[in-house]
Amino acid sequence: MSDNPLSVESETSSAGDSRPRRGIKSYVLRAGRMTVAQTRGLEEVWPRLGLSVVDGPLNLDALFGRAAPRVVEIGFGMGASLIEQVQAHPETDFIGIEVHAPGVGKLLDEADKRQLSNLRVYREDALEVLSRCIPEASLDGLQLFFPDPWPKKKHHKRRIVQPTFVELVRTRLKPGGTLHMATDWQAYAEHMSEVMAAAPGYRNTAAEGDYVARPAFRPLTKFESRGAKLGHGVWDLLFARTD
């Protein structure tokens, strides 16, 4: 489980701003065979729905042709959960970020088959996208579901949830916008909770304790379903930007 690959830059730039510099990665690129549908997504659908960091900052209203709520999901894996949200919420615009070609191709193929227009996709380092392309105070939500927990202590520095990451996310959220994280590793959930408790400008939306019940808008993933059968827990954290 917890196999969504993500990117992380763990250090701030020498200029002292919130943009991370090149640093430790939280993902490892894996080679894999591409199916016909995945190849079609990358070759035929990408020109219409794909985005690139080199294109620079986005004008989101122009990109989607409307003003609407905006949500970014980092590390969507094979895209099943994200495509379900995109189809269920046509009133919301979604941007997915994923580095692995098969997942990007699969998502694009499904979006095209379902004729979804409220989705755009980056196949890029997530921190590069956030720092260089997403405007400040433009997002209603950012989703980080089942990132790699890097369970060995020597690898904890590779975890994407670090103080620099949550501060960068905060600057991209609108006041009241939410950072929603979920993990099936309790130790990572506790790490997330500790990072968020120390992060300025956020409010935990949990009625009590550190975690919230899975919101109805977060689809049940195949990993979560499989884990539930094995008695594994899942922890959701939902924090809102306060300033």
Rank of each mutant, 00 (worst) to 15 (best):
K25W: 02
V212H: 12
G103L: 10
L6H: 11
T183L: 07
L60C: 10
L130K: 07
R19W: 01
I83T: 06
E11I: 11
V28E: 14
R48G: 01
G96N: 11
R19F: 01
L58E: 09
G231N: 11
P47S: 05
D3E: 12
I95N: 04
K113H: 13
R70T: 03
D61M: 07
S138H: 03
V71R: 12
D210V: 07
M1D: 03
I95E: 04
W150A: 01
T12E: 08
T35K: 04
R19T: 06
R159V: 01
E91W: 01
L238N: 08
P90C: 03
A216S: 14
L108Y: 10
G227F: 09
V234C: 12
D55K: 05
S138I: 03
I160P: 04
G176T: 05
M34H: 05
K113R: 15
R19Q: 09
M78N: 12
A101P: 00
G65E: 08
P215H: 07
I134L: 03
K229S: 05
F239H: 12
A206F: 07
E124G: 09
E110T: 15
R123Y: 10
A213M: 13
G105N: 14
H191W: 15
G65Y: 10
V45F: 01
A197E: 12
N4E: 11
L42Y: 00
I95S: 04
S7K: 12
F145G: 00
T221Q: 05
D148K: 02
A67G: 00
D125F: 09
V36F: 08
V8F: 13
H180D: 11
K174A: 06
L82N: 11
A228R: 15
T39R: 15
G231H: 08
K25V: 01
D125E: 15
P69V: 12
K154L: 01
V36E: 15
V129G: 07
A15K: 12
E208R: 15
A111Q: 08
L116W: 12
H191Y: 09
Q87E: 11
Q186Y: 13
H89G: 01
R66Y: 10
